[in-house]
Every structure is written in structure tokens, then in C-alpha cells.
Design a protein around this nucleic acid. Structure first.
Lengths: 198, 198, 198, 198
DNA sequence: CATGAATGAGTTTTCATTCAT
DNA sequence: GATGAATGAAAACTCATTCAT
């Protein structure tokens, strides 16, 4: 293996260690030594591969959003060969998003914490905005098929994401069964847009 | 001032100081001394009135939810004298909730952090669940007027709260104008229930 | 009851509270509020009846030694009417001392701690020396009946007290049954004196 | 110096610093920073080498008892070549114990405090019991040469240690000259056993 | 006499980060 | 690259004591 590959492996090893740590303790209570121990590397080494503790988190966010984005695209491509999305593919993709992403226990926990960290940390905030925007752009493409007005379509798609994150959040406090898990997404868009359109 | 009055004054003074502090820094970076300084009291006093730092937060949560609950009830009572809510009053109350609570900047910031704190702190988690359940019970009463099936009505009302919290969260990352702010709540309930009903 | 009597009652109440506290926690971990709580009085009041925390302990020592001294004298007087002690009365009194004082669980615990407190506190040290000297003087009177040489008699009586305190100490670490509890005190004196005499 | 050597040096340096500190102040008034200052190391380092303040003390006790045990054995071996102890060697060894250990000023002070600390700290109590038992086992071997009955021999040897600790304690309150320092240890055993035997 | 609010000094402990080996 | 010793700032919490009421 080349040095670059080793370097990348170590990096991923450490990011995965952070992931495991964040399932046990809040980030601010997770020490560099905790992460190092989970990754089976010396704690001094983390400062060789990453600038500081914050940098590990920043790169973790980047890495995780990328993974989910790739998952989303792969799933879409394999199921809906035609370029344009129809109602059925839109609905299915939305449902998959709720079930596989919003209701993913680990995802919910870790991102609930990252939202909080973003509040008073510009770098994390910027990173989050950037990724939510990328996500927004992608969902917008789907919604655009049913909503003529661009401004409305953008609003609808962002609200859809906000809704799915609300579901993610509440899956922490309540059981999935207590929430509506299968809905009429097309109708949802309509009702959301009704007044906004006026 | 009697000792009892002093006691209560101080407590509120400290809770308000925590509120101000949490607008500046994350809770875990807010020291007891920071809160004391904002409250203009000696830091030792905080340990006299509260068991520990966590206890201040717990009581802050209690106090804040209570305030919002009272606001909600007052608003409802003054506008809709008749006991049973009709479509119009339901819609207006929902809209008010989104605009005055979900889109309240301070509320959004502070509770986004409290969600994260709840993740690894049972006491905070229990407190949050308790208050969300109270909120849930209240919204359920409104929804019940339009939805016959109780199970469905409960699911719908909880999902409505999840949705409003999602909006609250996203008001941190984006501008209000980027989201749908006025919607057809009755239609929303219908579309959420469509598949769940089946 | 006169004010003076009330005052004394309160004082004893507080000294007894300290006694109870010291059975639970070391003195330095016992707060003024702990003592106040046990005595069922307001903590501010302790500073009215006593100069400070140390003063309570000093007075506790005085009070406790006095009690034991009175017990010793009473027991001696009731059993041995004649003024001069004979071998039998000396032996019995020694045995009583070991069994009732050295092996008194509470006495052992509390004084083991007071010895340590005396090490770096002159007032406590002086108080302890004063009472041990009083005790020494008393035992000397008994030993004097069998030992002609005053210097030797003084050494023997002090060593006898040291021995009984050693037993008190070890009753904390081991069971009474693991130690010799009934011995030939007269023979003990002889063997202790053998070489010292030369 | 290898890292392992550094590690051991530092440990001993810190234990020695605790020793020096305990000659000046009670343990509970000795701060981690005091010990660090005496050891000429950063106070944070103490938490790197030891779990906490209590752990330093625990290891100090272990270290100190070990040292005295080794001293005892060396002295015995160099003076009494024959395996079995005779009266003379027993008496000399006892005398040495009283003079070099019980009457060691530093030893007396520090252990008087450790006895008190053991009262409400299980770990220290266990450590002390363990070492006193080891000491007991060793003295028992000597006493066994003159006392046939094992139970009696065990009681006698433990009482002998209690006696020497009583002397240690009283050397704090009084001068050595006020106590019997050279005695007939063989006779002492006999008088202690007289009644116990019956 | 009695209360309890207020003070502030002091303590243990944690940890990101640096750096010599 | 890897190790682990070392640093020092910062935090929560305790508590004797004072004092106004």
C-alpha cells in the first residue's frame, strides 16, 4: 500500500472511531484519548492526521453526508432508470428517505448533536449549510417535476427536508409507531403550497 | 422583602441569566461563574439555590415550557371563546404556533441545544419527554375535532409537533422566507393520514 | 429553666451531634451544617455557641475525657472502699479499662481520628496532652502501691496507658478475639520494668 | 533514560514528596498542588501517574510497609545466621522494632494519620489490614519458637504489634524517656498469656 | 436568640495540545 | 511515523464564616 493509501485508511479509522464515540458520549465529553483508544492509535497521532479535535468532527460531517448522498443517488439510479422522476418514483424516494435516513437511530443521535454544535461554531455551521444546500438542490430537482413555480418548488423542497429532520428528531423522543410514517407526499406538497402560493 | 420572595426572585434571576448565557455560548461552555456574572450574584449562591449546573438547566426547561404552555392557552381562550375548536380556530392556532414558537430565534437556538443535551442525560430526556407529551395531549384535543379515529389523531398531532420542530431547527440554518410559512393545515393532516389510515 | 441552663443544654446537644457525625464521617468532612442538622438547630447558631468548628471539637474532647474520668472514679469508689489499692483492685480496674474504654467501638474510632487531628493542631494537641497527663497521674497512684521507685512507677503507668491505646487502635483493624484480652497486669508491670530498672 | 525508568523515577519522586508533605500538614489539607510543588513536577502530572489523590496515598502505604519489611528481614538475616530464633535473637529483634520503627518520629506521625484515614476509607483500611497481617505472620513465626499453642502464639504476636503501635502513638504525645523503652519481652509474652491460657 | 442569604477562597480533576525521543 | 511525558488553563463544587433581618 502506498503511503497515501495508508494515510487515508488511518483517517477513516479515526473518523469511524469518532462515530463510535459519539454513540456513547456527547462530543464535548469525548476526549482525543477516547477517540484514539477506539481507533487503536496513539493519541498524539490524531494531531498528526488532523489539525485538532474540531477538525476531526468537520471531516466526519463531510464524510458522512457524502456517504448518504451516494446512497441516495445509487438507490435512485438503480430503481428509476428514466431521467425524469414521476409521481411514483418521487413518493418512493421520499419514503425511503424518511425510513432509511430520518429513522436511522445512529444518524438521528449524532446529527442532533451536530446541529447543536453548529450553533456556536461557524465552521460546523458552514459545513452543515453547505451539505443541506446540496441536499436541497437535489430534492428540488425532484419536486420541480410537479411544481411549475421555481420559488415555490425551492420552498417546498426545503420544507420537506425540514419535515424529515423533524421526524428524525422526534424518533429520539418517541417510538416510530407514534408518528405517521407513510404519507401522501404529493398531497403534502399541495397543502404546504396552498397558502404560500397565494 | 420576605425571605421567600427573595428566594423566588433569585431563582428566576438565575434562570433568566442561564437563558442569556445560552444565547452566547453552548451550555457545556457556560460556566457557573458565567451564569452568576449575568445574574449579578455570587457564584456560590448558584449552588445554594440549585443542586448543580444540571439542575439549573432542568428547572429552566420546566419554567420555559410552562411559559409557552400558558401563552398557548391564553391566546386560544381570548380568541376562541367557544369551547370546541372549529377548522378556523385550529388553523389559526397552528399558524400562531409556527410563527411565534417555532420561528422564535431564541427558542430555536436554545432548544436545539437542549435536544442534544437530552441524548446522554436521562433527567433532561425525561423532562423533555414529559413536556412534549403534555404538548402532544393538547394538540391532540384540537385534532380530535376533525379526526374520528383516536390512534390516527394521536399520530397526526405528534407528527404536527415534529414538523413544527423541524421548522424550528431549519430556521437556524436558513431564512424563514426559504421555508413554507403559511400552509393548509387541514390538508396537511389529510395527506399525512392518507396512507397511515390504510 | 434559666438562660444559663438552656445555654448548656444547647451546648451538650451540639457536642452530642458532633459525636454522632464523627461516627459517620471524618471530622474534616463533617460540615458545620451536618452538625447543625444532627443537632436540629440552625447552622448559624453554632457560631453563636462556639467560636468556630475547631472549638466544638476542643470542647467535645474536654467533655468526653471528663465523662470517662468520672466513670473511672465512680467504678473504683463503688468497688474498692478502702483508700489504698491492692493487687486485686488494681488488676480489676485495669481489666475494666481495657474492656470498657479501649474496646469501646465509638471511643476507639473517634479518638483514633482525634490523635491525627492533634498532630498538626496545637490546641488539640495541648488538650490531649493535658487529659492524658491527668489520666497518667491517676494510674500512677495505683501503680505506686506496688512500685517503690517513683520514676519507674511513672514510666510504667504511662506505658500501661500507651498499651491500652494500642489495643484500642488494633480493635479497629482486628477482632477483639484476635488480641489477648485478659492478662496478668502485675506480671506485665514487672516485665516492662525489668530492664528499665537496671 | 528510557521511558520506563522515567516512569518509575517520577513515581518514587511523587511518593517521597507526599511523605515530606505529610510531615508538614495533614493529608486532607495537602493539596495535589502541594505534592507537585514538593516533587518539582507539574500538578497535572500527578493525575497522569496516579488515578487520584487517594491512589497516591495507597501506593505510598504499600511502598512504605515494603521498605520496613525489607529492613526487618535484612537486619534479622545479618545478625542471626541460624534459621531458628532463640530467646536472644527474639528479644533483640523486638527491641530493634520498638526503637527503630515505633519510635521513628516520621513513621509515627504519618501512620497516626493513616490510621485515621483508614477509618472511613475502605481501600486504605484494606491496605492497612493486609500489611498488618503480613507483619503479624512474620512476628508469629518468631513467637512460635517459645509458645507451643498456635492460637495463643497468634494472639500474643498481634498484641505485641498493638503494643508497639501504642508506643509509637505515645511517642507523639510524650518523650521517649517517659516510656519504658527496654523491657523483658519474654516475660511480657508470659504475662500477656497468663490468663488467656486459662 | 434564630434564620438563611451571601461571600469567596480553595480543591480536585480533566484535557487539548506540544514536543523530545 | 509513533510514543507518551509534560504543561497549564479552566471547570464544578464545597464550606466556614459573616451578617442583615
Amino acid at each position: 500500500m502506498s503511503k497515501k493509501v495508508i494515510r487515508n485508511e488511518r483517517r477513516l479509522q479515526i473518523l469511524e472511531a469518532l462515530h463510535q464515540c459519539m454513540l456513547e458520549k456527547p462530543f464535548y465529553q469525548t476526549s482525543i484519548k477516547d477517540i484514539a483508544a477506539k481507533a487503536n492509535v496513539n493519541h498524539g497521532l490524531l494531531h498528526y492526521y488532523f489539525e485538532n479535535k474540531e477538525d476531526i468532527l468537520i471531516q466526519y460531517i463531510e464524510h458522512t453526508f457524502d456517504q448518504y448522498f451516494i446512497m441516495f443517488e445509487k438507490r435512485f439510479e438503480t430503481r428509476f432508470k428514466e431521467p425524469g422522476a414521476n409521481i411514483k418514483s418521487f413518493e418512493e424516494q421520499c419514503r425511503w428517505m424518511i425510513h432509511e435516513i430520518s429513522f436511522n437511530k445512529e444518524f438521528s443521535r449524532i446529527f442532533t448533536e451536530i446541529w447543536a454544535l453548529a450553533l456556536y461554531n461557524h465552521k460546523i455551521m458552514d459545513k452543515m449549510r453547505k451539505h443541506y444546500q446540496r441536499w436541497h438542490d437535489r430534492i428540488f430537482l425532484l419536486v420541480k417535476n410537479f411544481v411549475k413555480d421555481d420559488t415555490t418548488a425551492r420552498r417546498l423542497s426545503l420544507t420537506l427536508i425540514a419535515f424529515s429532520e423533524g421526524m428524525s428528531l422526534f424518533s429520539i423522543f418517541f417510538k416510530k409507531e407514534d408518528l405517521c410514517t407513510d404519507m401522501d407526499f404529493k398531497g403534502l406538497l399541495n397543502s404546504l403550497a396552498t397558502r404560500t402560493k397565494q
